[in-house]
Structure formats: structure tokens, C-alpha cells
Design a protein around this nucleic acid. Structure first.
Length: 814
RNA sequence: GCCGAGGUGGCGGAAUGGUAGACGCGGCGGACUUAAAAUCCGCUUCCCGUGAGGGAGUGUGGGUUCGAGUCCCUCCCUCGGCACCA
């Protein structure tokens, strides 16, 4: 046997054999517990980089571990293949998006095969192929018929570089496009929306799923639930039909502190409520606001601006006339677009009142309040003052009392508002699933009948972005007949957001090739939900939120019977290289291919797992990878060199067996918790020990062989190729990957001798090796008898002695 | 400002309230070699000491405890998310 392991040949050999034998293909098997292990599918951007490996290799190791444990493991892979980069590549290189995408898919598929994963390729799905997007369209129709998809005109986010609208979730930071980073603007357009807001409350409920705190917080934050009251303020204007304006507040208990009333500049009543004398100023202000970008308008710490309209509302609780102002910090899209101004108890209102010299009236007494003019807003709780009949109540009780009164009198009601908006799914781009709708002059908006699906994306459209959908100019596509009346109709020319495709791909893996439905109910019942879903945290309020919503919607449509798609979620960290996240756009990607060729996929897999905790990510380093390759080589030699010991060496054999069981235990526990780095560290310790044993020939041959067998089994998920090769070379039957994960024996793993630590006043003073079975009295006596202990205890008296079994003795002196 | 994750050797990182620094990288010294590579062995938190040994030490300052990297409080810093959302 060669002294050096040549992964190139070995890995290729086994990959081919595994594929030929189809050992990783799975079918529903009711006799075994199922485990659905899913890794987020990649966008086929061209080539796999180390970042992809970091997402995929450790999850494959875990899936292999579950598989060896006897689970029927579904671990599929596919491609999120619709999207802008394909279209952009097509434009800049003159290749059709389909060709570009499928070329990348083919390339990445080959690269993926070199990783040595257990992906069941017979289940692969590619979202841009008609047999898949057929069902994306079909789901859209289901949502439409259920009233969950609707068309509306609204001011929407527009990315000038991508030349398309974006969902709110795709606008990040101070108004940047999540994809390309361009500054997003607003456009008034009629678009398709999905009613995710209907599920806002349910989406806040994470009970029953094991998701990272961080993602839960981000989604909760994004949904932005606020409890409060909507309350009516009276309008007494002869020439205004409305007799009230409603405002939302989370603090109805502060209503006696209202000294002004605010409308957003876009509020529909602004013009009617503007007094003639104020008109010029108001119009100028509204105009100025219109020119502000959203991100400017909502920036914190911005100086307050606003204009008095010259008219008033009436605070129904105390009958006071309150001046109406407009200001840009009141947003038209939140609540009712109107706010009651309570400067004493709201920081923003306080600033506003200061700037425009409006009264500030304290109605909730701050701590140590002396009755004077406040110097800052008090937004906490307290005793109600200046509030008529409510004086003396705590603000918490006042909240309820005032809500009761409002509801009694019909002046308002308790209500909840959300920050989340409905999901805008229209995109003015070519490379996406068509929205299966037809516009007919006679019948209006008509859905394409299910039996006419899929609406195919025409291959020959001119797809240069113009700000309008490219399909608009593809006449054979646009011109159709109305499904209802048979007259001339025009197809919807926008396509769907790609997140519509990734909303349900995990369902499709269960039913590959199903062509009469998106999935087979029995297969869904067997496999779903996903037991462990792993991927990047950047999808927190995009894919991960949308998928939860979609699953709940499908459940309500009666298509599935569960409401959460992913039982356990884990986010791996980010691989950085040369000071930044590895990404194609940054130009700091590390291609795995060369490393795989030189050192092997096993080494790359193991190194990525060893960098640190999977959730933290880490820095890619060549020397670290070399270290991992060294270790695999040591195992190669350890096994290859052979061993000739005596027939039986009871003491040493027992010690080796003890260590073996300890290692099995630690490796099993770590894999369960996805702690790959420490799992590998314990395997390394084990091999270090085996090296010493080999050198010293200290154990019997059978004991050695047993230890090696266990080592290979423990190594199999991490280094599937090396483990398989050595498994064969040590005379075991093919395949190691169909073996059971070793069980450990707690009794055998127990230490026989322990190091008893002796402390004096908590400081380490001595150590002694004693039998693990040592009793308390004996341990204390031994410890107190030590010279190095007595040196500290002779002078001072001993107050007490602490004994921790199998750990330490701590002597406390006065 | 709010929410979340962090802060431990030269570096990545280990440590059920009980020996801080496992494991690996790097470095230093040695073996093998004509030489190098590969491999193997030893050392490697800092300070004092030839040594035995002693002292300090997990962002800061307090607290709880026989004992704190770990639990509690204060503050500082880094990263991620949200933020004029009424």
C-alpha cells in the first residue's frame, strides 16, 4: 500500500460506484423513521465556490450520520434557476437565459458530484423548467381563487438598475436593492400582491418549531405587531363630507395630552382641510415631501418639518379643538395615516411641538414629577394627571378604561396594526414564471384555466430591460383568447418574483416526476415537514418568511395538513476570505476544484467543518486545509502500515476500548448538535492515541483491529471516500455507508482512573491520580495528607473541605 | 435607540459552576536525509526564577459562591438586523 494517500483516484472510483449502485436513492419506507435533511438550493450562478461547500458539506455529514443511525434520509438538491443574473448575463453576453442557466446547472451538478454527498439526484428539480413552474403558476391560481392573490395600484419600490419593482423585503438598509445595491425609488403601479398580512399573527407564533432566536426576532421585528386603539376625532367643516378622522395610537391613555393632530402629506383629506390662507404653503410642503425619497423621509434624527392646515379636529374626550398639521414623519402606509400629537409622551411629537411652539401637556406623571414643563418626552407608564375623570389611575388601567369608553361611545376601538405589507410579486422582467392571467376588454381579469397550464415562457422574447416587462413586446405571447368569452385577450406580461419558486421547492423533492399535481399527497405525508433545514441567515425575512406564509396558505387551501415547513432551522455562518464575505461580485471567491484535485474532497469537507462552530463561519485558509489533509494521511498510514501485536494484553486492550467508546459517545453527541469542529477534534485525539499504540505495539491485534473498524465508521460521514477505501482494504464488505453508526457502552466508556484536583481556597495546589471508585473520606484524607497542601494549611486552620466526586477536593482555610 | 450574536494564547478555536487554553494552524528545537520535501519526536498564555517553584491571566468594574470564561448587575467594544411604524 502506498504510503501516501492519492485522493484523486480513490474519490473518483467510489463516486462512480456509488452512482452506478444508486446507493443514495431513497424511497418511502414506512418501516423506518424518516429524516428530511434539506440544504437551501443554490442559484446556478456559474460555478460552486467554497461558500457553497460550507453550506453543503457539513449538512451532508449530518445527513449521513442520520442515515447510518437507521433513518430513511431524504437529502435532495436542486437549482433556484429563475432570476435576474441569468437575464443580465444574457444581455451582456448575448446568450439566452435558458442556455446560460442550464449550462451553469450542468457545470455545478458536476462540481456537486465531486463533493461526495448523498444527494439523491433522481429527485433533482430545476425551477426554471416548465415541469416545475407549471405548478408555481398553479399555486398562484389557487391563491387567486382563495382571494389571497390580488391586483392593486400602489406606490411600490422600484429598482432603477434592475428595472423592476421589488417587495418591501427586498429593500434593505437605507433604501437599497437587496440584489444590486442601487438606491430604490417609488413608482405608482398596478401590481399583483399576495395577502401575507392575513397571516401576520400566525407568523408570529414559533411554537412547535426550533428556529434560532435571531431569525425569530428578525421575523417578529419585520411583522411589527402593535396593539393599540383606533380612535375618532371630530371634523366640523361645512364643505367636508367626512365628520371624523381616525388615528391609530398605542397609547390611548395619553389622549388628554393631545395638543395637535397630524396627517401624512398624502392623506386624502389634506386638500379639503386646507384653509385658503394656508393653501400656498401647504401645497409647497406637499410638493417638497413628494420629492423626498422614502429612506430620507424615515431617517432618524431628522429635523421635524410640517405645516398647519388652518383647520381643526375635536378631541371627543374633552371637547377641545386641536389644530391639524401635516408632517412627513407620519407615513401614509401605516395605521390610518393620521396621528394624534401628544408631545409630552412621544419623543417625535415632543420635538415637533418644540419646533412649532405648540403646548406640551403632561398627562402621565413621570417619576419625581413636580408639575412643571417637561424637558423631554416621558414615554413610560405612570399616574394619570390632567385627564379629567381618569386622574389618579395608573396609565395601564387608564388604557383599558379609555378603550372601554371609546368602545361604549362608538368613538373608537381596540385594534392591532402591523408593519408588514402584502407581498408584491410582480416583476417587470423576462426570466421568471409567467403570471397566468388574461385581460379581456369584456370580462376583465380572467385566470387561465388550470388545464391550460403551464403558460410557457416564450423562448424568443426580446428581453432587454426597458422598465416594462419584456413579454409585453412579444406579440405571440401577449395576444391570446379570453378563457371566459373566447374573445381577444392579452396575457399578463409581468413574471413572478423568484421567491415564489423557492416557496415550495421542498415539497417537490418528495414527488419527482409527478406530472398531474405539484406533489403526491402520500409522499408529502411521509416526508414532510423538513426535519432540519440549513442555509444562510440572509433569507430571514425573505425566503424563510415567505415559505412559512405559503405553507400556511396551502394548508388553508386543504392541499397539505401542516402549517410549518421546517421543523428545525440552522444557519451556518459566513466564510470570509481576504477581509470579506466570499462572493462572486467581490471577486474573492475561492474555487474548490483545485483543492479537491490536489488534496481531495474529504479534506475540504473536513477542513470546513473544523474551522470553528458551523454557525459562526470563519476565514478560509490554505494552511488549515493542509493540516486537515495531513490528518487524513495519518489515518491512511495508520491503517495501511498494518499491526502485529500479541494475542491479548488485557490492561492496554481495556484502555483502548474505553477510549474507543468515549470517542463514539463524544462524536455522536457532537454530530447531533451540529458541532462538527469538536467532533473532529475528538477523532483527532483518538488517532493521536492510536499512533502511540501503534508505535509501542501495546495492544493485542484484535483490539487494534476493532479500534480501527470503529474509527472508520466514525470517519465515514466526514470523509466518505477515504473511509470507504480503507473499509475495503481492511477486508470489510461494501459499503461502509450502509453500516450502522456504532453504539457506545456507557459502562465501557467510564474512566478507571481519574485525576483528582486538589485546591486550597479554590487555587490549584496539587493533582493526584486515583482510582475512579475512590470514596469521599479517602479522597479527602489523601488530599489533606499531601505536603503541598499542608504547606498552605499548617499556618491557618481548616474551615471545611469540599469534595466533588471524580473531580476535586477544595480545602478552605480561615 | 431597540433586538440578536460575540469579546479567551501569535492565529482559528476548546472548556455539564470544578485542572483555562482540548484539537488544529503557525513558530522554535531535534530525529531521519548528501540535501530538500514528506514524516516522526519535544516545546510553545504572559511575567519572575538556572531550578524546584511562584505570581498574573478569559473586554471593564462590581456581586453571588468553598470555587466564575461559565451565573447576576454596570459599563466598553465588534458584528448582524430593525428603526420618525404613532
Amino acid at each position: 500500500m502506498a504510503l501516501r494517500y492519492i485522493p484523486r483516484e480513490v474519490e473518483k472510483k467510489w463516486q462512480e460506484k456509488w452512482a452506478a449502485d444508486r446507493i443514495y436513492e431513497v424511497t418511502e419506507d414506512k418501516s423506518r423513521p424518516k429524516f428530511y435533511a434539506l440544504t437551501m438550493f443554490p442559484y446556478p450562478s456559474g460555478a460552486l465556490h467554497i461558500g457553497h461547500w460550507y453550506a453543503m458539506a457539513p449538512s451532508d455529514v449530518h445527513a449521513r450520520f442520520k442515515r447510518m443511525q437507521g433513518f430513511n434520509v431524504l437529502h435532495p438538491m436542486g437549482f433556484d434557476a429563475f432570476g435576474l443574473p441569468a437575464e443580465n448575463a444574457a444581455i451582456s453576453r448575448g446568450i439566452h437565459p435558458y442556455k446560460w442557466t442550464m449550462g451553469n446547472v450542468e457545470n455545478m451538478r458536476q462540481q456537486l458530484r465531486s463533493m461526495g454527498t448523498i444527494y439523491d439526484w433522481s429527485r433533482e428539480m430545476v425551477s426554471c423548467l416548465p415541469d416545475y413552474y407549471h405548478w408555481t403558476e398553479w399555486f398562484f391560481l389557487k391563491l387567486y381563487h382563495a382571494g389571497l392573490a390580488y391586483r392593486a395600484k400602489a406606490p411600490v419600490n422600484w429598482c432603477p438598475r434592475c428595472q423592476t419593482v421589488l417587495a418591501n423585503e427586498q429593500v434593505i438598509g437605507e433604501g437599497y436593492c437587496e440584489r444590486c445595491g442601487a438606491q430604490v425609488t417609488k413608482k405608482e403601479l398596478e401590481q399583483w400582491f399576495l395577502r401575507i398580512t392575513k397571516y401576520a399573527d400566525e407568523l408570529l407564533d414559533f411554537s412547535g418549531i426550533v428556529w434560532p432566536e435571531r431569525i425569530q426576532a428578525m421575523q417578529t421585528n419585520w411583522i411589527g405587531r402593535s396593539e393599540g386603539a383606533e380612535l375618532s376625532f371630530g371634523l366640523e367643516h361645512e364643505d367636508v363630507a367626512e365628520k371624523e378622522i381616525r388615528a391609530f395610537t398605542t397609547r390611548p391613555d395619553t389622549i388628554f395630552g393631545v395638543t395637535f393632530f397630524l396627517l401624512s402629506p398624502e392623506h386624502p383629506l389634506v386638500s379639503q382641510l386646507t384653509a385658503p390662507a394656508q393653501r400656498a404653503e401647504v401645497e409647497e410642503y406637499v410638493d417638497w415631501c413628494r420629492r423626498q425619497a422614502d429612506y430620507e423621509r424615515t431617517a432618524v434624527g431628522r429635523e421635524k418639518t410640517g405645516v398647519f392646515l388652518g383647520s381643526y379636529v375635536v378631541n371627543r374626550l374633552n371637547g377641545e379643538k386641536v389644530p391639524i398639521w401635516i408632517t412627513d414623519y407620519v407615513l401614509p402606509s401605516y395605521g390610518t395615516g393620521a396621528v394624534m400629537g401628544v408631545p409630552a409622551h412621544d419623543e417625535r411629537d415632543f420635538e415637533f411641538a418644540r419646533k412649532f411652539n405648540i403646548d406640551i401637556r403632561t398627562v402621565i406623571a413621570p417619576p419625581d414629577w413636580s408639575g412643571g414643563e417637561p424637558t423631554e418626552a416621558w414615554s413610560g407608564q405612570g399616574m394619570m394627571v390632567n385627564s379629567g375623570e381618569f386622574n389618579g389611575l395608573s396609565s395601564e388601567r387608564g388604557y383599558e378604561a379609555i378603550c372601554d369608553l371609546l368602545e361604549d361611545k362608538g368613538w373608537g376601538k381596540r385594534t392591532v396594526t402591523y408593519r408588514i405589507r402584502d407581498w408584491l410579486i410582480s416583476r417587470q422582467r423576462y426570466w421568471g414564471a409567467p403570471i397566468p392571467m388574461v385581460y379581456c376588454d369584456r370580462c376583465g381579469v380572467v385566470p387561465v384555466p388550470e388545464e391550460d397550464l403551464p403558460v410557457l415562457l416564450p423562448p424568443d422574447a426580446e428581453f432587454k430591460p426597458t422598465g416594462e416587462s419584456p413579454l409585453k413586446y412579444c406579440e405571440p405571447f401577449v395576444n391570446t383568447t379570453c378563457p371566459k368569452c373566447g374573445g381577444p385577450g392579452r396575457r399578463e406580461t409581468d413574471t413572478m418574483d423568484t421567491f415564489m419558486c423557492s416557496n415550495w421547492y421542498f415539497l417537490r423533492y418528495t414527488s419527482p416526476g409527478e406530472d398531474s399535481a405539484p406533489f403526491d399527497d402520500h409522499k408529502i405525508a411521509y416526508w414532510m415537514p423538513v426535519d432540519l433545514y440549513t442555509g444562510g441567515a440572509e433569507h430571514a425575512v425573505l425566503h424563510l418568511l415567505y415559505s412559512r406564509f405559503f405553507t400556511k396558505a396551502l394548508r388553508d387551501l386543504g392541499l397539505i395538513d401542516f402549517g410549518e415547513p421546517f421543523t428545525r432551522l440552522f444557519n451556518q455562518g459566513i466564510i470570509v476570505y481576504r477581509g470579506g464575505k466570499m462572493s462572486k461580485s467581490k471577486g474573492n471567491v475561492v474555487a474548490p476544484d483545485e483543492y479537491v484535485r490536489e488534496l481531495g474532497a474529504d479534506a475540504v469537507r473536513a477542513y470546513l467543518m473544523f474551522i470553528g462552530p458551523w454557525g459562526l463561519g470563519g476565514e478560509w485558509s490554505d494552511s488549515g486545509l493542509v493540516g486537515m489533509s495531513r490528518w487524513l494521511n495519518r489515518i491512511w498510514r495508520l491503517v495501511g502500515v498494518g499491526y502485529a501485536g500479541k494475542a491479548s494484553v488485557p490492561e492496554a486492550d481495556r484502555e483502548l476500548r474505553r477510549l474507543t467508546h468515549k470517542t463514539i459517545r463524544k462524536a455522536s453527541e457532537d454530530l447531533e448538535k451540529l458541532r462538527f469542529n469538536t467532533m473532529l477534534a475528538c477523532l483527532m485525539e483518538f488517532t493521536n492515541y492510536l499512533s502511540k499504540v501503534q508505535e509501542a505495539r501495546s495492544v493485542s491485534t484484535p483490539a487494534w483491529e476493532a479500534a480501527i473498524t470503529y474509527l472508520l465508521l466514525l470517519l465515514a460521514p466526514t470523509a466518505p471516500h477515504l473511509a470507504e477505501e480503507l473499509w475495503a482494504r481492511t477486508g470489510h464488505p461494501y459499503s461502509i455507508h450502509n453500516q450502522s453508526w456504532p453504539e457506545y457502552d456507557t459502562e465501557l466508556a467510564k474512566d478507571k482512573e481519574i485525576t483528582l484536583v486538589v485546591q486550597v481556597n479554590g487555587k490549584l495546589r496539587d493533582k493526584l491520580v486515583v482510582p475512579a471508585s475512590i470514596g469521599e473520606a479517602e479522597a479527602k484524607e489523601l488530599a489533606l495528607g499531601r505536603q503541598r497542601v499542608q504547606a498552605y494549611t499548617n499556618v491557618k486552620g481548616i474551615t471545611k473541605v469540599i469534595y466533588v466526586p471524580e473531580r476535586l477536593v477544595n480545602v478552605v482555610t480561615s
